[in-house]
Design a binder for these strands. Structure first.
Lengths: 204, 204
DNA sequence: ATGCCAATGTTAACGGCGTTAACTTTAATT
DNA sequence: AATTAAAGTTAACGCCGTTAACATTGGCAT
């Protein structure tokens, strides 16, 4: 495909990129297909050749977000179990704090309910997988108590997800005001999950 | 004020109630001032005599939500520290699961950013206060480790908030599929926060 | 090379939205 | 009883997502 006056030639990619930067700066509510088309210099219906509707565009942006989160989590170098767990928790929260609008799009729940968009679901699961793998390694090594993997990962995910949203929504002091809050919180959870020789009884 | 053909007489309360039930059933995105006015049988601009704009109406609904959450949390009967903490955590998650659309309005973050609506902020803080008081009592009684109250409550809140949102968004099995997930998660956190003395290792 | 077709643009239009301006009716006050 | 403030009305503006109908163009089969 070649760029001409009539055929744009790169509309899908350009719309995706521009919409992504708009979301990152101003949130998904700032996305308007008409405004997007005007900025690119194309008529509004042209976008419908590349995106079924507004929701589909947002879904693509959310997928980009999950990909970025997955890459971010994968960069946490595998070390001793404790450092690996704390490190991946902090990386998760840091991502949310650096990309609050993108994170809210990914997990806002208002748009794009789970189970309706296979590619989006897959991207989310792939990011989650990194977290689960880290927990599983620590568990396999005997560092954590012998409890169901699903329970452990659900707990860890709930904690970092809740902390992420509460901080980016201003309910808790953010990383600038309380730089060690995230570390304190993750450490506190870890205390309950570590296998202690004198305290390794089963939990419900 | 008396009801006449012209003057409605109860528009504010009726609009609030109808909008609240709409949000509970279909989410805040389903709220349209025009549709609301039509259902009530009034012209759209009439609503502007009672609500500055759509956001103000949503803020009022969110305040109602926080009030309901606060009352729900206050109903948790004060018992031994462990039961009180688990109980209030489960009550929090149960509220979110029973009122997912309302909970998302309260904490969605897309609308109504914190710090812009004093009455809304106050309602949120009042609900949070119940949670903090419960944690503080357990701490004062020596059941929990001697660590900063703010850290403990932030951890507890993050956990129940994250769990609430992940379940209502379908990322984790909900209460029907895994009725003991919330209990397992809160218990797991508690293990890390309990002061490990002999008289605290009583109940599983 | 040419003719066709699918891809990818266009303009025009529909219905819905939040919101404002200007006006009207009613309730309350003086 | 006259006036004023409260709480409705209609009409309109500019935005939005989306669709229908049409136009242009690139690439492929002939």
């Amino acid at each position: 495909m070649v760029r001409t006056a009539y055929h744009h030639g790169d509309l899908h990619q350009q719309a995706h990129a521009l919409a992504l930067s708009t979301v990152r700066e101003h949130g998904d509510q700032a996305i308007s297909l008409r405004a997007l088309a005007k900025q690119i210099g194309v008529s509004p219906p042209a976008l419908y050749r590349h995106f079924a509707d507004r929701e589909s565009l947002l879904a693509e942006l959310a997928i980009s977000g999950f990909d970025a989160l997955r890459l971010r989590l994968r960069k946490v170098s595998p070390t001793a179990p404790r450092q690996a767990l704390i490190g991946i928790g902090l990386a998760y929260v840091a991502f949310a704090q650096e990309e609050p609008n993108l994170y809210r799009l990914m997990f806002g729940g208002r748009v794009l309910p789970r189970g309706t968009h296979p590619r989006l679901d897959h991207a989310g699961q792939a990011a989650f997988q990194v977290l689960e793998d880290t927990v599983d390694r620590a568990r396999q090594s005997g560092f954590l108590k012998p409890m169901p993997l699903a329970l452990m990962t659900a707990t860890a995910w709930s904690l970092v997800h809740g902390l992420s949203l509460l901080t980016i929504d201003g309910h808790l002091p953010d990383a600038d005001a309380e730089p060690r809050l995230a570390e304190g919180i993750t450490s506190l959870l870890l205390e309950g999950a570590i296998a202690h020789s004198d305290n390794n009884k089963d939990l419900p």
